[in-house]
Amino acid sequence: MSMERGLRTGAVEIGTSLAFALAGAAAIWDSRRIGAGWGAEGPQSGTFPFWIGLFLVAASIGTLVQAVRAREESGLFVTWDQLRLVASVLVPTTIFVAAIPITGIYLASAALVAWFMHRLGGFGWGRSVAAGLATALVTFLVFEIWFLVALPKGPIETALGY
């Protein structure tokens, strides 16, 4: 079997339609709470989400049935090699996003740019770090100084008085 070579489309298809159904069910549940009827002066707050949730559940069950039927002949969603490439971008990005509340966006950005250049582009550490810092500095000047947009900041910026 060639199962080892990647994630099968059928599995992802089934998972996705289940997630859709779940979202629909959550909407239905919440709409029932706030009233999903047709009041004296038109629909209540929950009416639209309720019916939309219902449609969503119905459509996703339909997709689910199709996916289950076609499971056997479904191809690969993504090969492990491809997934590795995707992860090489997604994992650092996730760390970047997670780090923003702690370090602020500038330091995190510098690190992300440097990491990408070094790991994915094969640039030396010196140039990568310099480019990262330059990105952070330009961003800082553009947003914080010129446009006066306050972006998330960390301890370093606080120490510098911003």
Binding site: F96, I100, I105, V113, G122
Partner: peptide
């Protein structure tokens, strides 16, 4: 090169998502 522009795009996207309503959660 992709390795440079991709990171910068990600940074710009993060800033963009944040500035819409000044919320870190949006990133």
């Amino acid at each position: 090169p992709f390795s440079i522009i991709a990171a910068i795009i990600l940074v710009v996207c993060a800033i963009g998502a944040f500035t819409v309503s000044n919320a870190e959660f949006d990133i």
